[in-house]
Write a protein that binds this DNA or RNA. Structure first.
Length: 193
DNA sequence: TACGTGATCACG
DNA sequence: GTGATCACGTAA
C-alpha cells in the first residue's frame, strides 16, 4: 500500500524523516521495478539555513512550496541527482532527502544501471540510489501517490534503533548545520559513510 | 585530501 | 552575461 498524502502533509518534517526509516521506496520504469528499504534520511525546513527554500522560491525549489506528497529532484555538483520527498502544506517548503537504501527488488537492474561490478553498496548514498532506481530530474514534481514512484509500509523500526546526527555537507548553514536532523537505522550496513 | 562537473543563483 | 558555489563520489 502506498503511503497516503496525510503521511507527507504533517507539519513537523523531522517526524516524517524519522518515520520514513523502514519504509520501502519503489520505482517502476519500462526496464522494470526496483525498490529498497530506507535506512537513512535528512530533514530540511524553510525555517533553517540548510534548506534550499530558506531564501524563498526559485525555479529550482518551486515544487517544495507545493503541498507534501511529491518528489523534489535536483542535480548536485553537476553530477548527482538527489531525491527528496516534499512534506508539509502549501507554502511551508519542507522536504526529506533520502540518503541510503537497503536494496530489495530488482537488484540486477540496479547493477546494470550503475555499472557496479560488485553488488555491495550500490544504494548507500543519495547520488547512488537515484542512479540505481532510475530516478532523474524529469521526475521532479512527480506525485508519490499516483505515479511510477512511491513509498510503502515495510518494516517497523523501534525508536531505540533510530540514530540522530548532524546533516552531511551543509557547512554553509552555520549554526543550523549542528541540528541533529540526519536520521539513520543504528548498525545498518547500508547507511552511507 | 583533491577535484570533476554543470545547473543554479545573485550579482550587474 | 558572469562567476562562485554546491544536500556527492571516487580515486589516492
Amino acid at each position: 500500500m502506498k503511503l497516503p498524502l496525510s503521511f507527507y502533509q504533517r507539519t513537523d518534517v523531522t517526524v516524517v524523516a524519522r518515520q520514513l526509516l523502514g519504509k520501502k521506496l519503489v520505482t517502476v520504469t519500462s526496464s522494470g521495478l526496483t525498490s529498497g528499504v530506507i535506512v537513512e534520511t535528512e530533514a530540511y525546513s524553510y525555517c533553517e539555513r540548510g534548506c534550499h527554500a530558506y531564501n524563498g522560491m526559485t525555479k529550482r525549489n518551486e515544487v517544495m512550496f507545493g503541498a507534501g506528497g511529491v518528489a523534489y529532484v535536483y542535480l548536485c555538483y553537476g553530477v548527482h541527482e538527489m531525491f527528496n520527498v516534499v512534506t508539509n502544506r502549501e507554502e511551508r517548503a519542507d522536504a526529506v532527502l533520502i540518503r541510503a537504501l537497503e536494496p530489495v527488488d530488482g537488484i540486477d537492474l540496479m547493477q546494470q544501471r550503475t555499472g557496479a561490478k560488485r553488488e555491495k553498496r550500490i544504494t548507500s548514498g543519495p547520488g547512488k540510489l537515484t542512479k540505481a532506481l532510475g530516478i532523474g530530474r524529469g521526475w521532479n514534481g512527480t506525485s508519490l501517490i499516483a505515479g511510477e514512484v512511491w513509498i510503502e509500509e515495510c518494516r517497523r523500526v523501534p525508536p531505540a534503533k533510530i540514530m540522530a546526527s548532524p546533516r552531511i555537507g551543509i557547512d554553509y548553514a552555520g549554526e543550523d548545520a549542528k541540528l541533529l536532523w540526519r536520521f539513520s537505522i543504528r548498525e545498518n550496513e547500508w547507511v552511507s559513510k
